[in-house]
Design a protein around this nucleic acid. Sequence first.
DNA 1: GGGCATTCTTAACATTGGATAATTGCGGCA
DNA 2: TGCCGCAATTATCCAATGTTAAGAATGCCC
Lengths: 253, 253
Amino acid sequence: MYREANGTVATRYPFTGDFLASRLRDRYSKADLDAIEALVDEEMHLPERATLGTQGDDTPSFAAIIVEGFMFRITRRDGRRFIVSIHVPGEIMNLQGFAFDRIDHEMQAAGKVRLGRIPFDRLERTLAERHAVAGALWSGTLLDAALHRKWIQVAAQLDAPQRIAHIYCELHERLGFIGQAGPRVLRAPFTQTDLADMCGVSAVHANRAVARLREFELAEIRRGTLYTQDWDSLRRYAEFDPAYLQAFHSANA
Amino acid sequence: MYREANGTVATRYPFTGDFLASRLRDRYSKADLDAIEALVDEEMHLPERATLGTQGDDTPSFAAIIVEGFMFRITRRDGRRFIVSIHVPGEIMNLQGFAFDRIDHEMQAAGKVRLGRIPFDRLERTLAERHAVAGALWSGTLLDAALHRKWIQVAAQLDAPQRIAHIYCELHERLGFIGQAGPRVLRAPFTQTDLADMCGVSAVHANRAVARLREFELAEIRRGTLYTQDWDSLRRYAEFDPAYLQAFHSANA
DNA sequence: GGGCATTCTTAACATTGGATAATTGCGGCA
DNA sequence: TGCCGCAATTATCCAATGTTAAGAATGCCC
């Protein structure tokens, strides 16, 4: 077991500090944590909208941990983009590319993104040696799946304004886990077109949805950044119940 | 590496034969395969509609591999059920319960189901000893996530008849992996209410959707069983592209 | 600082997916 | 044989969303 103040973690684990903050810090040995940090090869910078892993072929031969910024997983349907998931600092992208030789989606930077590059060979070696690290990454995938399940339900059952509200509530909660949730503001570099592509609706309709949240005085969304006085009301409106994220807090393994 | 005719596999691996058939058989040592089969404790039988793991507490202290039948993952929204995913023989349920101390969903048997019970302690021991088995289960979770992503997209972008068609196309493909896909018939014990709860629509509307598939002469669905002359047309109608399942065939690890 | 490109906003109108309710038909099971 | 749950059908109504178009704000680049 290992624990220290957050500032220290940030310097000792410049790439994986957020990953550790979210759920692992208390649960793994210092050697494991160091091994996780040592997975990272070098820092990468993605410009706004850059994509990784053109669908099918051309899968990057590395995974990547998000150090700063937001990334999307996207698919395309006759050219038009659909955003399947959103990822925040501390999360690892492209583990699917590691396990399989093709991936079912592309990855795209929303805004500028800083990544820690994790080469597959290094990852493979560490996983073989460190059972606990493998468990940590596996539980990341399990969480991914839990988020996806919620999104399925949200997409099938809520209307556009609720969906957008739900997305922000979820992000707020997830950013909270890494100590990056402000009390009244959630800064994100999303355009309304991004919001539309998350919901599978037209950009005009996404605008209407945003307008409705404003009209209801639940939230003001400007250039992707959400301002609210009252997260509770917003959560109630979105029918947001963070239970599905509780796994973040409570690992068995 | 290990390979033998399917009949033999069935007797040697009565619980995990389908799991192995799907993607692992060529990739793992005989010792690993035996270890996987040895995960199973005893056989369990679930009656129609039985549920496991009441949301939140009461998580079963075992995982379970489906030997025969179909299972749902479900969530509830003020009492009403929503089906988040469907599982077929060879798939392992409740790995989330193993990794975390709560799960975000319940599991429900559609029709009668035969399961192989996998106690957590046994699972934990095997994973610690056998790196390759851990990898196998992890890739199962990655696949789960890939299926979920497709469902998100389907829920957000397709209408009810297409969604139902897509569900059956996907099931047909998945059953194919374990040698259980008939050329013209897909037998499943789903009611129209089940279909409705998969799509997030009313039962009446699910009925309309089924009627439309019939009217278009794409498929006839009676008591959950689908009959079709022409899977290709059905796939085109559902915009079904099996690429997202290709991971089943092509593991790196 | 000016101008261009993107993003956002608003409006009007068409479409349709889906809810609800009420009724009939069917088939399995006791 | 008769019941009962499920499936199928029909009709009406409404909210959610798509489309198109045009103008306003914003931010970026030179």
